[in-house]
Simulated assay, not measured.
Amino acid sequence: MHDSRLEAIASYRDAFPHITPLITDWSAHENQGADSFHAIKETLGILATTDQAIPLRYKRADATDPQVLAWIDELVEGASPARVSGVRKVSTGPSLLLLGPTGTGKTFQGYGAIRRLSILGVNASPSAAPIADIYAKMRPRHQVDSEEVFESYAHTPLLFADDLGAAKTSEWVEEVNMRLVNYRYDRQLPTIFTSNVPPKELGAKIGERVASRLIEMCRTVVLKGDDRRRQGRAA
């Protein structure tokens, strides 16, 4: 069982050999006072859970933008080691706002950031979805607890909300945006947001109160370039 878990971990990491995991020498990990058995089990769980959170099109996504990599470094530095396993866990930290025209790689960088954290062996327990899907799941209807759905996204340690500002504006959408952003803003929960909305138009599109919080809580990265989708690459 121990060997099979190590092989499974290696299979995930071999696809990204340029990323150096934080835990590579399990014996040394044990010598530092942590439990290698639990560390191996937890690390495999991190890799498997993250893989399930990433859509098929973005399975090979990798963060490459220097500012995105710097944000990842901040999260890693602020992550605390678990008491038994010693595996680092994300709890609080800065958020990330990826802006730019359609097809410039915002979603690719977002999923790449989530992937890189897992390869590093950091437990971020990510939840990822286009913002339109979050709205759809939250819409009041029979046998759906909208508040429970909201809390599942609000409480997640690392949330990736893709394509903010793309949905048609309504009072209900503005309320969801405000509640979700404000909840994570107040608790300093790291969140990845992407948006096609130009920086100067963000307040008009999603509301000034939401935009103000985003600017304060996020490391903002503006991506430029041609539409990658038209060139046959994921964006």
Rank of each mutant, 00 (worst) to 15 (best):
D3H: 08
S4M: 05
R5Y: 13
R5C: 05
A8K: 12
D14H: 13
H18M: 08
I19C: 03
L22A: 10
I23D: 08
T24A: 13
D25R: 11
A28Y: 03
H29W: 15
E30P: 02
A34W: 13
H38V: 09
I40G: 09
G45A: 09
I46S: 09
L47A: 14
L47C: 12
L47P: 14
T50Q: 01
T50E: 09
D51F: 02
Q52Y: 04
P55T: 09
L56D: 14
K59D: 06
D65M: 03
A70F: 10
W71V: 09
D73R: 12
D73N: 15
E74N: 14
L75K: 11
V76R: 07
A79Y: 02
S80H: 05
A82I: 00
S85P: 05
V87D: 08
K89M: 03
V90R: 03
V90I: 15
S91V: 08
S91T: 15
T92H: 09
G93T: 12
L96R: 12
P101Y: 04
T102M: 01
T102S: 09
T104K: 01
K106R: 12
T107V: 02
F108A: 11
G110T: 11
Y111E: 02
A113P: 12
R115T: 10
S118Y: 10
N123F: 00
A124V: 01
S125F: 04
S125G: 02
I131M: 15
D133G: 03
I134C: 00
A136E: 01
A136T: 02
K137L: 00
K137Q: 03
K137F: 00
M138G: 01
M138L: 02
R139D: 00
Q143F: 01
E147W: 11
V149I: 15
F150S: 01
Y153F: 02
A154P: 13
T156F: 00
L159P: 04
G165I: 06
G165T: 13
G165Y: 04
A166G: 07
A167K: 05
K168Q: 10
T169R: 15
T169N: 12
S170C: 12
W172S: 12
W172R: 10
V173M: 14
V173R: 14
E174K: 15
E175S: 15
N177P: 07
N177Y: 14
M178L: 15
R179I: 06
V181E: 02
V181T: 13
Y183G: 05
Y183P: 00
L189N: 09
P190M: 01
S195G: 07
V197E: 08
V197F: 04
E201R: 15
G203L: 01
V210T: 15
V210C: 10
A211G: 05
A211C: 04
R213G: 04
L214G: 06
I215Y: 00
M217A: 08
C218T: 15
R219Y: 06
T220S: 06
T220R: 02
V222Q: 13
L223N: 10
D226K: 11
D227F: 01
R228D: 00
R229K: 11
R229A: 04
Q231G: 08
G232C: 11
G232I: 12
